[in-house]
Nucleic acid binder design. Structure first.
Lengths: 232, 232
DNA sequence: TGACAATGACTGACCGGTCAGTCATGTAAA
DNA sequence: TTTACATGACTGACCGGTCAGTCATTGTCA
């Protein structure tokens, strides 16, 4: 091969180990003294660095030396926070998914039209997932899932099944209210979600060949399900 | 982690180096003598073994020792057929995609209704991709694509762009004939294909949690696009 | 046809680089 | 000082890639 995979120590090393040991606690927010606090800071740095590396290289190809360097930490420090590479990976994914899971609990969808509710979901999704690093996590799960059944299980339980259940409820409501014509859609909420997933995958694989306007695509898709919108 | 990834030397070792050197050419078809023919046979064995391993483990985690063992061949033999691991991977994917690409050329879709044409596509897809090892290849591309731009490019050029173009043409025809109400669909043929892709991914990640009837899902999706079918 | 030589597919022990994980040593907070 | 945290040199297993040697097959000549 010639111009393939990104090189090891690239990307922003985040903090090249700035603010060395003996720094003053400083004014208020940033440095933060107290052992526990500092430790938590480091742990966070490690998590972010590791996620970055895992996304860029996948599990096996990621070197903990690189993670350490990017986090501005010695390799040994990683092992103060995680048992080993594998459990670090699993814990990482779990952590990264928590906010997503939070979202799935929040709005018991009533009030306006079902379409508005779904549109809200879609907008949130694009903002929070498709255009964030979180989208890459989804791709990472697709990539490593088969080798990490524990991850796949967790993802299914916490995200997929909940998400689909929510969508199914929404669809049934839409059918009941006459907003959705196709009754059978409730049997396959996946159809409702599919384009969103595609958008994420497209983003990381083909966006440089042919950029995809996810927002527009999702709008067209909703028009397909709910019928054309009256007002443009 | 505990019960994860499959073990190295599993699966059928194909031929544990059976039919040793001095065997007779046998009756007619199977063994096949002649140096070139034997070599081709081995190459094929290597390709199949490698594909299997790559699918199960991903690029980096795959050991060429295992590929060799599975193919019933010495490791050195691999290097008689491929320059190195990377080019082997690329060549493999390309090879595996050829039949798929062939499909995309074949039927310039006319004759019956557009829906029938699309349904044909869907059926073919389920038979040839979703339920075959070929589906795993798609997942493999999603997984390794970012690290192998050459693969992603190839896949986009040879499969994605052609496939989408074909779908777009079909959609436009459908719109012109009044089979498809939603005119904007032609702008995003991805929507038409999305559930199929989801089915493939679902298959390899979640099928053991919740099996998915891909055929039914695709039917519902087509009903959504073309309107409910008259006769059941 | 039989004997011998040339060929090159195939082998697998080996080498060298890489990287997950360890631990003796250093440092600063308590 | 004591204690808990942090470091990074180090170890050893692992794996991609090599290559000298083997031997069935093919070609050649008598």
């Amino acid at each position: 091969m010639s111009g393939s995979s990104p090189k090891p120590g690239e990307g922003v090393p985040s903090k090249p180990a700035s603010r060395r040991r003996g720094a003053v606690p400083a004014a208020s927010s940033e440095p933060l003294s107290g052992r526990a606090a500092r430790a938590a800071e480091r742990r966070q740095a490690i998590i972010e660095a590791a996620l970055e590396e895992f996304i860029a290289r996948g599990f096996t190809a990621t070197r903990l030396d690189d993670v350490a360097k990017r986090a501005g930490v010695a390799k040994g420090t990683i092992y103060l926070h995680f048992k080993d590479k594998e459990s670090m990976f699993e814990e990482l994914i779990r952590t990264a998914l928590v906010p997503l899971i939070g979202r799935l609990h929040t709005p018991p969808p009533i009030g306006g039209s079902v379409r508005d509710a779904v549109e809200g979901f879609a907008r949130t999704f694009i903002q929070e997932v498709a255009s964030t690093r979180r989208g890459d996590i989804v791709r990472l799960i697709v990539a490593e899932g088969p080798r990490f059944p524990a991850i796949a299980d967790f993802y299914y339980r916490e995200v997929v099944s909940r998400g689909l259940a929510a969508m199914r409820a929404l669809i049934e409501l839409g059918v009941a209210r006459g907003e959705i014509a196709q009754k059978e859609l409730a049997r396959f909420p996946q159809i409702l979600v599919a384009p969103a997933l595609i958008a994420v995958i497209w983003q990381s694989l083909f966006s440089r060949h042919a950029p995809l306007d996810a927002t527009e695509m999702l709008r067209v898709h909703l028009d397909l399900i709910f019928g054309e919108r009256r007002t443009s």
